[in-house]
Design a protein around this nucleic acid. Structure first.
Lengths: 339, 339
DNA sequence: TGATACCTCTGATTCGTATTAGTAATACGT
DNA sequence: ACGTATTACTAATACGAATCAGAGGTATCA
């Protein structure tokens, strides 16, 4: 019967409480004292609100220019992918924690996924994110045209992961891959490794560039040669070549390369770390690699904190680009060079 | 183009194109042909849209359109708890998938958490959920007064997990624990077990009642005695008693009890399944138990599907209470009775 | 010639909220 | 009695887009 009942508006509350809609608005927004509304009336309005189960319509509210305490979370892929269970999860833990702390609800933009599984910020030329006061963006996809458009529009957002977009200064919270990678090289050098290879895929995004830069400066610091290999296919032949070249330690950018290397080593009757030290910088799985600890939850928390600062319009807090330190890898697959 | 200028509205586009705002709206929404606007005008408007970089204001749009295309997700605990990594995650996978399919965005209600970590639907007597068109509720907490209130209010929601609330018919998608538990008893009986114990905590919520009912009917079917123990502390003394009583198989309601039993068995120099078959019905972790496979993602998908049907107001689709079958456990800790 | 249909639009209104300007009523000081 | 302050509100409006009920104009037909 009352299943399809219209949702209550301030006007309904007003009628029930015997006041005007403006008064209801004032009470609801806590401007009661300030507007000189007596305790009595405030209570009467609040009672009416409760009776009708009134809740502000966020669309109307934000149309009017007020914030609606919604933060968007936009990922360039599915947020809860089946295969990458932990990847986004850790970020979300942090995002949720900080949202709780700051009293925001989260909007997960799911409707923006088009049939090919890509997620776009703009659909039919409409910025779906604008529903939220501001958004945290998350993911490794490129989409820098969309980011540029978003920035040009003046929409408040924070990107998780360092990001440069030509022509616009965007806010981000990133992991300090460069220093972490440099430290790893230093550690390997300290163990006596003199020829440390770095293997990475062909992608040119910031995360990859940062690690490369770290590798280079690590080599420079220790006076070692740069042995960089850009490939997405590590086979036994590569191991032969590396071995012949005197390589005793390998930094692999990701776990796919790591697994390929382990397999290739095995095929030559070798293993890590006995025959070759191995560090996998980034991994989606937890399988005993020596790998960086990316401070995912801190990044999530930091991004939300930064976003609420931006929304608060506090210009003094200035810096909207922040690198968080990575934890260094465990020693599982690191050892001194053979012989 | 210039960053400081106000965002363009349809009125601006209209002025530039030399038409009215209504015409712009029609063109933008593709109602051009239908409204009989000639190709010429459509092109002129589109050109103006491009020149001004016009982007529709979603708040205004949804204010007018009534629905926000937002579905709420309310959990009675933190959505992304650190310790129960997989528990909610699997539900969310399904929820997200179906939301994508139906073109909805998701609102995770985080702001409703009060300082003691509890989450309530109503705060200050106000239903924050009403922000979304409808919501999926998730969690093992009681909160049935809140549910009753929500139902009385006519707010559309679907609960994940069977739920009865006196006085109101609420929509839910549950797992068929009863039949699954019965089947497990049957399987153990088939292996020759004649005295199968069931151990559960003192809670009286639907999920627990369902499993009990399944255990009972399983025992009845196989002509076995009901050996039910309500406790939250399984110690070696219990093992002694059970052993003395001829118990050869134990159904533990959850993994906490399961771990206690394993420990208690170990303390008596025994192990599962050699000395005692063990089935843990529900587990938060994946550690080689024999346990039910709760169809979490299907439940999430089903709940969203049901919710969108309710929102669509399709009364023909009627049934708003649905049980999904559980997968039966693997044999890891199940064996024939000793001797 | 007048009636009718069709085409191409437009003015006015609506959604629900926040806010500004203002009003009516009473109190207070002189 | 008159002017000013204060209290407790309310009426009116704006936000931006969608929509409905026409308004003029032209073409067609009887």
């Amino acid at each position: 019967m009352d299943g399809q009942r219209r949702r209550a508006r301030q006007a309904d509350v007003a009628k029930l409480a015997g006041v005007s809609q403006a008064t209801v608005s004032a009470v609801i927004n806590g401007r009661g004292p300030e507007t000189g509304i007596p305790e009595q009336t405030v209570l009467r309005v609040q009672e009416a609100v409760r009776q009708l189960g009134y809740v502000a319509n966020p669309a109307a509210r934000s149309l009017r220019g007020k914030r609606n305490r919604l933060l968007g979370v936009h990922t360039f892929e599915s947020i809860f992918p089946i295969d990458q269970l932990d990847f986004y999860h850790a970020f979300l833990v942090g995002i949720e924690q900080q949202a709780i702390a700051d009293g925001y609800d989260l909007v997960l933009f799911a409707s923006t996924e088009d049939p090919d599984g890509r997620r776009r910020i703009y659909r039919d030329g409409v910025n779906r994110l604008a529903l939220a006061d501001g958004s945290v963006l998350l993911g490794v996809e490129d989409g820098s045209t969309e980011l540029a458009k978003l920035a040009a529009e003046g929409y408040p957002f924070v990107h998780i992961g360092r990001r440069t977009v030509p022509g616009s200064e965007i806010a981000w919270v990133g992991a300090d891959y460069a220093n972490a990678t440099r430290d790893i090289v230093a550690r390997l050098a300290g163990l006596g490794h003199r020829r440390i290879a770095y293997v990475t895929g062909p992608d040119r995004m910031e995360v990859f560039l940062d690690k490369e830069a770290g590798y280079r400066s690590g080599c420079a610091d220790a006076g070692l040669p740069e042995l960089m290999y850009v490939t997405s296919q590590l086979d036994p032949a590569w191991v032969d070549a590396a071995h012949a070249g005197g390589v005793t330690a390998v930094l692999a950018e990701n776990d796919v390369l790591g697994r390929q290397l382990v397999a290739a080593l095995a095929e030559r009757g070798m293993s890590a770390p006995a025959d070759m030290s191995l560090v996998v910088l980034v991994t989606m799985t937890e399988d005993g690699w020596s790998s960086l600890r990316i401070p995912r939850d801190e990044m999530g928390r930091g991004a939300v904190k930064m976003l609420t600062q931006i929304l608060g319009g506090d210009p003094a807090l200035g810096e909207h680009q922040r690198l968080l330190p990575c934890g260094l890898p465990a020693d599982d697959m690191i050892g001194p060079p053979r012989g």
